[in-house]
Simulated assay, not measured.
Amino acid sequence: MLPVVLVHGIRLSATMWDPVLSHLSRLGRPATAVDLPGHGTRRGEPFTMDAAASAVADAVDALGGRALVAGLSLGGYVGIATAERFPARVAGLMAIGCTGLGSAAGPHRFAASLAARNPSLANRISSYTLRRLLPGPVGEAMVAGGVFCEVMPQAVDAVADQDQLTALASYPGRVWLVNGTRDPFRVHERAFLRACGNGRLILVPRRGHLGVLAAPGALARLAGDLCDQVDHCPHTGAERRV
């Protein structure tokens, strides 16, 4: 059974995926979540895209050397980088909420710079906001492993400096771009889809950037379904709503 490697968003950690991992376990699907450099158990390590992609590749190797890589936001961009650098390890890519290009990075660089000036305050604000956006166990999982705003400028720069479309075009495997219909990071989704050699766009109605995590069972089932499709379903290039 094809395993899943889950990659977290900026300033968070692997614990954000705990509710999804629980559902994947119930489905009998082997899965793990990885901490990226500068986050979680790897706090203090410098964040580079090469180091982040290597961390994901190591997690894939620990599960047998081939997996569906699924990441949200920063994790999705890291998934794209991993697919470009280690295509044999990435059996398929589920890139969630990460279809904005570096040309729109200015506001994100500014916000990251502000957060890094006073990370302890930014961490508290982030924790409060995440718990409000996603009440209950999902929000608690988001912050359980800590919040790490000090690494945000490095992560934003790494994403902005990566040629996302070239990276996608170089990857021969299947790609699913998953966006909430209310996610502002949808802005360049059509360009991302065109860049994929074997891609599909999946839209989640009435969900924002983080809102796709609000239904971890549905997200786990989707990941399992995509695993099952990797070697069996022909490419359609179609758009789907879930």
Rank of each mutant, 00 (worst) to 15 (best):
M1N: 05
L6M: 03
I10L: 09
I10Y: 05
R11K: 15
L12K: 05
L12P: 03
S13D: 02
M16I: 12
W17I: 15
D18Q: 10
V20I: 01
L24N: 01
S25M: 11
L27S: 07
R43S: 09
G44V: 04
P46R: 07
T48R: 06
D50C: 12
A51P: 02
A52E: 00
S54G: 14
S54Y: 09
V56R: 03
V56E: 00
V56W: 00
D58A: 13
D58R: 10
V60R: 03
A62M: 11
L63Y: 02
G71Y: 08
L74M: 12
L74G: 04
G75R: 05
G75P: 00
V78N: 01
V78G: 05
G79F: 10
I80E: 00
A81Q: 06
A83D: 00
R85M: 12
F86L: 13
F86C: 11
P87N: 00
P87F: 14
R89G: 08
V90H: 04
G92D: 00
L93M: 13
L93G: 08
A95S: 10
I96M: 04
G97A: 15
C98A: 09
L101N: 00
G102F: 04
A111W: 04
A112P: 05
L114H: 04
R117F: 13
R124H: 10
Y128K: 11
R132H: 12
P135V: 13
G136N: 01
G139R: 11
E140S: 14
A141M: 09
A141I: 13
V143R: 01
V147Y: 01
V151I: 05
M152W: 04
M152N: 05
M152H: 06
M152K: 09
Q154A: 15
D157R: 10
A158I: 11
T166L: 07
A167I: 04
A167K: 02
Y171H: 00
N179Q: 13
R182F: 08
D183P: 07
P184S: 06
P184C: 02
F185D: 07
H188Y: 04
L193H: 08
G197H: 07
G197Q: 04
G199K: 06
I202L: 10
L203T: 12
V204F: 02
R206F: 12
R206C: 15
L213K: 03
A215F: 12
P216N: 08
L219S: 01
A220N: 01
L222E: 02
G224Q: 10
D225W: 13
V230N: 03
V230F: 09
D231T: 13
D231F: 13
H232N: 14
C233F: 15
C233A: 15
C233K: 15
P234V: 14
E239I: 14
E239R: 14
E239D: 08
